[in-house]
Nucleic acid binder design. Structure first.
Length: 417
RNA sequence: GCCCCCAUCGUCCAGCGGCCUAGGACGCCUCCCUUUCAAGGAGGUAACACGGGUUCGAAUCCCGUUGGGGGUGCCA
């Protein structure tokens, strides 16, 4: 998924599950140095004592000076300094610091011997030579612990931290897996381009100085600076994502658009051929790749499904519908038989002329007697596609071909008897 | 509760003491173009949370208030 987004990584992945011994060793060093200690308090014990003490949460340091020996079920806790502060300069937030006294003695290795994530994380980062720790704002509070651990272990701390603004939903709550659409795979499957995704995501919390928001990812990479990221949470706006996606789709070379659309075509070669015949028309209209097939479906299916709303709008409320259909059938039939059955006359320009003629014959004209193409095309469009909106009509008819076009026009005409 | 962070149009971003009668983008609305829909063009709608300072001068600096978010596990 990172690769889909165009993100690469250095080195080989490190699996924390295979490095348990390393973390336990580190914890032992901590204990030996007096920076950590064994604790046999259960969660219930701690809770009970806290309740008795007035209900304040957190570990009370019960075992801090008991000098317990290692034993099964005994956890290792880090001995937090009682005074002083721990802080850092955050690339996006500036100076942040915590009073050490506010940080409880946190568990580093569980009673069952399993190291805690925080220990593994801070150890691995130093071990792998991580220079920049870039993560969500929700990690701010654990950063002092991370720092304390590395310092106590004598490890090198990262050059810089950047705590990015959280992405929030309409309720202004942090995006969550359960509630919100956060799956990249999902966006990919819904027809969003990876470059559009990367582009839009970069725009949350940051903006290019020149104000050009939609642009190639390489440019964003060149322009992006963590120091310029703002610190307030950002709403993930699907509407704007759609816009950005549409822009990136339009920026594609037609051949590339075709290739990218391929996975979304479920109707095989005929769908591909249909799309090929009117790529640019479709490309310009679609906001996601998932919208491609519905737009050309009428060219592929035997009988297009009739959309109720379209029928009502164009047929029920329309005027001179039967007249228009009759006249159109006549002209197009003539056009189809022109040139002794050759299809040379069946092209968008000729079709437009024929339909315009039909409009005049049907009486769909304006005050000057010119054909009202906008009204005239309605019945024809519904007849061939079942819908009142779609790609340009002349091109659509040209691609559909005379036989199917006439058959559909006649079928609709008979429905109106 | 305690700790940390945040606060400019509905949304995202710009603004980092005077150029701001606050700019751009998405959305929405109007008009133009137009064979529908898109695209494109021209307009419009709409914001510096509040209160104190500092300063000749604050959206910009400081303090407080309010509001919002995040964190507070022997979860990752």
């Amino acid at each position: 998924m990172l690769r889909w987004l165009g993100l690469e990584w250095d080195g080989t992945p490190v699996h924390q599950s295979e490095r348990g011994d390393l973390y336990r060793d580190a914890a032992s060093k901590l204990v030996a140095a007096g920076a950590a200690y064994y604790c046999d308090c259960t969660a219930e014990d701690v809770q009970a004592r806290n309740k008795a003490a007035g209900g304040k949460p957190g570990y009370d340091g019960h075992c801090r000076d008991r000098a317990l020996e290692p034993a099964p079920a005994r956890a290792v806790r880090f001995r937090t300094p009682r005074d002083g502060r721990t802080g850092w300069t955050d690339l996006v937030r500036g100076e942040i610091s915590f009073a050490n006294a506010d940080i409880e003695d946190f568990v580093v290795v569980r009673g069952n011997g399993a190291p805690m994530f925080l220990l593994a994380n801070s150890f691995d980062d130093a071990d792998m030579g991580i220079t920049h720790v870039i993560r969500g704002e929700d990690h701010v509070n654990s950063t002092p612990k991370y720092l304390m651990l590395q310092q106590a272990l004598g490890l090198k701390t990262p050059e810089a931290f950047a705590h990015m603004p959280l992405l929030v939903n309409e309720q202004r709550k942090k995006l969550s897996k359960r509630r919100d659409d956060v799956s990249m795979a999902d966006y990919r499957d819904r027809g969003y381009l990876p470059e559009a995704m990367a582009n839009y995501l970069a725009l949350l919390g940051w903006g290019p100085a020149d104000g050009v928001e939609v642009r190639p990812v390489e440019e964003i990479v060149a322009l992006y600076r963590l120091e310029d990221v703002n610190a307030s949470p950002a709403f993930f706006d699907q509407k704007k994502l759609s816009f950005v996606n549409a822009e990136h789709i339009r920026a594609l070379a037609p051949a590339e658009f075709l290739t990218r659309s391929e996975p979304f075509l479920t109707r095989g070669a005929s769908a591909r051929a249909a799309l090929e015949s009117m790529v640019t028309e479709v490309q310009e209209r679609v906001r996601t790749l998932a919208e491609v097939e519905p737009m050309i479906e009428f060219l592929v299916v035997d009988e297009p499904e009739v959309d109720e709303a379209s029928w009502t709008k164009v047929v029920t409320k329309g005027k001179l519908v039967t007249e228009m259909l009759d006249a159109t059938i006549e002209r197009l039939a003539g056009l189809a038989s022109d040139g002794g059955g050759q299809e040379s006359g069946w092209n968008p320009a000729a079709i437009q002329v024929a339909v315009a003629d039909a409009a005049v014959a049907a009486g769909l004209v304006n005050a000057e007697g010119a054909p009202q193409l906008s009204k005239a095309q309605g019945p024809v469009r519904v007849a061939i596609s079942g819908r009142s909106v779609g790609p340009p009509l002349w091109e659509s008819l040209a691609t559909l071909g005379p036989e199917r076009t006439l058959a559909r026009l006649r079928a609709m005409r008979s429905r109106l008897e």
